[in-house]
């Protein structure tokens, strides 16, 4: 009897493999094979000089060394990190404040649904269209300049796209607008999950508001903070659509807004598969390590 029932279960359990076939078939074909061939490409000299193809010729790790010893990649990594941090710091700060207010029952904020709906909305906007919109709005003859002139704040149009600081700030502003609502809602879920009796006990013990915030709220939110930080960094390293469209792929002015992935895109469109491969592998290693941290947070949750 026992033998029979375990046999039946085993027969059912074979369906587990069958149901996994589509996922793994597609994953292997469209992710795993491309990954393997990206790594393979990175060991070859293979690019176009004009219309003539140079290579492919096996050169070992030369692409990797060449990439790291060129000043450009460090500049692009710097650009990417500056623009990520410039968006992330206001993002996490504003999100923390808003989530704290939303979760504070003594404030009894009305219209929370409305505010959450509004601040999350930019997250769903097509980044390339949003960037195009900013380009049009902040153009030399665009509405923002027109407004500033008609309000007598400016005498003549400010050329946002010719200023390193202004271009970067616009990119940071777009990243901030697209992500602070998302972060607010994640932090809010964490704050609402905190056991109310903890606060009551602290109040009975005479803790001040700031003590409660830094000693209770923040430590409990730590896993969410790490999650938000790491996923945002992974997203930040992939920054592409916004600066690509805003600067028409040129990273203007003077390469100050070219990101790492814009650089990868340049290698791909110019068919420099060796260097593109090496850059991809570096990005794979970095995001792989960062993913591992997220992975550990996600698995720890299930205990």
């Amino acid at each position: 009897m026992a033998k029979k029932s375990s046999g039946t279960t085993a027969r059912y359990n074979r369906w587990g493999y069958i149901f996994l076939i589509p996922f793994f078939l597609v994953y292997v074909i469209f992710s795993f094979i491309p990954l393997a061939s990206t790594i393979y490409n990175s060991f070859f000299e293979n690019y176009y000089s004009g219309l003539t193809q140079i290579g492919p010729k096996f050169i070992g790790l030369e692409n990797y060394i060449k990439l790291l010893s060129s000043p450009e990649i460090w500049k692009y990594l710097g650009n990417t990190l500056i623009m990520w941090i410039g968006g992330f710091i206001p993002q996490i700060t504003v999100a923390l404040i808003l989530a704290y207010w939303f979760s504070d029952p003594s404030l009894k904020l009305k219209g929370q649904r409305f505010f959450k709906t509004v601040i999350y909305m930019p997250n769903l906007i097509m980044a390339s269209a949003f960037s195009m919109l900013f380009f049009a709005l902040f153009a030399d003859a665009g509405p923002i300049n027109q407004m500033l002139i008609s309000l007598h704040i400016l005498k003549e149009p400010f050329k946002f796209m010719n200023s390193i600081a202004a271009s970067r700030i616009l990119i940071m502003l777009m990243n901030f607008l697209m992500w602070f609502g998302n972060t607010t809602i994640l932090l809010l879920a964490g704050m609402l999950g905190i056991d109310g009796s903890l606060y009551e006990a602290a109040e009975v013990d005479g803790a001040s508001a700031s003590q409660i915030f830094f000693r209770i709220t923040m430590p409990i939110l730590r896993p969410i903070f790490i999650y938000v930080l790491i996923t945002s960094l992974i997203g930040g390293l992939q920054m592409y659509d916004v600066p690509q469209i805003l600067t028409n792929g040129k990273g203007t002015p003077a390469g100050s807004t070219t990101t790492v992935i814009m650089n990868l895109n340049q290698y791909l469109t110019s068919k420099n598969f060796g260097m593109g491969g090496a850059l991809s592998v570096y990005m794979f290693i970095i995001t792989g390590i960062l993913s591992l941290v997220v992975f550990r947070i996600n698995s720890a949750k299930k205990d």
Binding site: T9, Y12, N13, R14, W15, G16, Y17, F19, L20, F23, Y27, F30, S31, I33, P34, L35, A36, S37, T38, Y40, N41, T231, I234, L237, Q238, Y240, I261, L264, L268, F273, G276, G277, S280, V281, M283, F284, T287, G288, L290, S291, L292, V294, F295, N298, S299
Partner: peptide, 30 residues
């Protein structure tokens, strides 16, 4: 279903979850 390798497969999918498609796009295009 409870099949052999289930936990390993579940862990594997979780591990690849955050890896961006951009790092394999070169091979993908080829």
């Amino acid at each position: 279903y409870r099949f052999k390798g289930r936990d390993a497969i579940a862990a594997f999918i979780l591990a690849i979850m955050m890896i961006p498609g951009q790092v394999t796009v070169l091979g993908f295009i080829q």
